[in-house]
Structures are given as structure tokens and as C-alpha cells.
């Protein structure tokens, strides 16, 4: 019955909003696969050395700070780059939980149940995915078209500051700070709004699966 349609769901927004934040967050986390070894302080050179061949795995320790917390929540676990387009974040403490991003959706595993959320092509998400692709493929031009990029430090200890140029993305994401040494990325810090930030430190034992 074409004529009998309901008003579109303004109601869905809140739920969807949360999921989008969730997805954005996860995609940003995958950035840490991006620069395992940066030997030059030229962005192009840093990116040239960033190609990651799946499968790969890296352990992490993450601090999450926000205004509801009196102390940061500490998470540990590992990240997996299973194949091109398939990424997985597994939390081992303080609870078990896993997120798999694959084929346009996020699969959340919690307490033995899974829930799938579609990854639709929202503009901000596209931008961020584009940025990841840019880093994985060493395309410094594309990265610069989305972020203001600042590279500091030495080859043994460098830091890459990424600030979104789009005002829309900047409303939620203040910036990213990726740090590394001669061998790999050592940490990634994500700054959101309202004093909310996450720091993920990568553990050195990254070994092929």
C-alpha cells in the first residue's frame, strides 16, 4: 500500500547516532595499523613505509577518559588485521568483547551473542575510511585533503598530528595523534569534544598470525 506509509522515523535518530559514534570510534582505532614503520619525517616517506600486509596482530592497552569517569577505564586486548577490509578488535580485560568490521558492517560479540550493525555510507564515515585507505596505500595527497597534517620529532620518535578539515567531522573529532619509533607505531591518541579522549598504546610483540 503505497499510500499508507508512516512518517519516517525521527525516532531512530538517537539509536543510530550512538551506533555511528561507535563505528567512527572503531574505524579510528584501526588507524594504528597504518604506520608500523616510519623512517623519514617526510609525510610521503612515512606513508611510503606504511603498507601493512594482512594477516597481522598487535596487542594494546587503552585508556578511556570522559566526564562520567572519576578514573580512566583501562582496556587490554589485541587488534587483528585479518585480510584487506576485515579488521577485529578483541577486548580481554576487564571483560570479553569483540568487534569485527567486515563487508560494510560491524559485528559486535558480547556475552556469546552477536549483533550486526550496517556501516552505511555516511559522509563523515566515508571521509575517515578514505583517510585510512590513504594511509594504508601511502597516498599522502588524499590524507592532506581530509586532515591538516603535522609531522614532528625524529625518526626514532615521531608524532603525526591529524586535524580534520571538515567542520562536520570536527564537531565530533578534535584530532588524532599517532606516535611511533623507528620500528612501529607506539600509540594513538584520539581527542573528542568535552575533555573526552582515548589513548591506545600498542605493545611491541606484534607478530604475524
Amino acid at each position: 500500500m503505497r499510500d499508507l506509509r508512516t512518517t519516517p522515523p525521527r525516532l531512530a535518530m538517537t539509536a543510530e547516532h550512538v551506533y555511528r559514534l561507535v563505528r567512527t570510534q572503531f574505524v579510528l582505532a584501526t588507524l594504528l595499523f597504518a604506520a608500523p614503520s616510519a623512517w623519514s619525517l617526510e609525510l610521503g616517506a612515512v606513508l611510503d613505509g606504511t603498507t601493512v600486509a594482512p594477516p597481522a596482530r598487535v596487542g594494546f592497552r587503552e585508556e578511556r577518559h570522559n566526564q562520567m569517569f572519576k578514573e580512566p577505564m583501562i582496556l587490554t586486548g589485541y587488534l587483528e588485521y585479518l585480510q584487506a577490509g576485515t579488521l577485529r578488535k578483541v577486548i580481554e580485560t576487564p571483560f570479553d568483547e569483540a568487534f569485527l568490521i567486515e563487508a560494510g558492517q560491524v559485528v559486535i560479540e558480547r556475552d556469546g551473542t552477536t549483533r550486526k550493525l550496517p556501516l552505511r555510507k555516511s559522509k563523515s564515515l566515508q571521509t575517515i575510511l578514505g583517510a585510512i585507505e590513504a594511509i594504508l596505500s601511502g597516498d599522502s595527497e588524499q590524507l592532506k585533503s581530509v586532515f591538516d597534517v603535522e609531522l614532528d620529532g625524529s625518526r626514532e620518535s615521531w608524532s603525526l598530528q591529524l586535524t580534520p578539515t571538515s567542520r562536520r567531522i570536527a564537531k565530533r573529532l578534535a584530532g588524532l595523534q599517532v606516535a611511533g619509533n623507528g620500528q612501529s607505531v607506539t600509540s594513538i591518541r584520539i581527542d573528542l569534544k568535552n575533555d573526552e579522549w582515548h589513548l591506545m598504546e600498542l605493545l611491541r610483540d606484534d607478530t604475524p598470525l
Binding site: 538517537t14 547516532h17 550512538v18 551506533y19 559514534l21 561507535v22 570510534q25 572503531f26 578511556r64 570522559n66 566526564q67 562520567m68 577505564m73 582496556l75 577486548i91 576487564p94 571483560f95 568483547e97 568487534f99 559486535i108 558480547r110 565530533r172 573528542l192 569534544k193 568535552n194 573526552e196 582515548h198
Partner: peptide, 15 residues
């Protein structure tokens, strides 16, 4: 807490 291990942002916190 598990939600906040994954999601973030002031909208989620307020909620």
C-alpha cells in the same frame, strides 16, 4: 561500561 569501551561522544554519555 562495555558500551563505553566501544562507543564515545557526549551524546552517548548524556544518554
Amino acid at each position: 561500561l562495555q558500551d563505553l569501551a566501544f562507543g564515545a561522544g557526549s551524546a552517548l554519555l548524556d544518554l
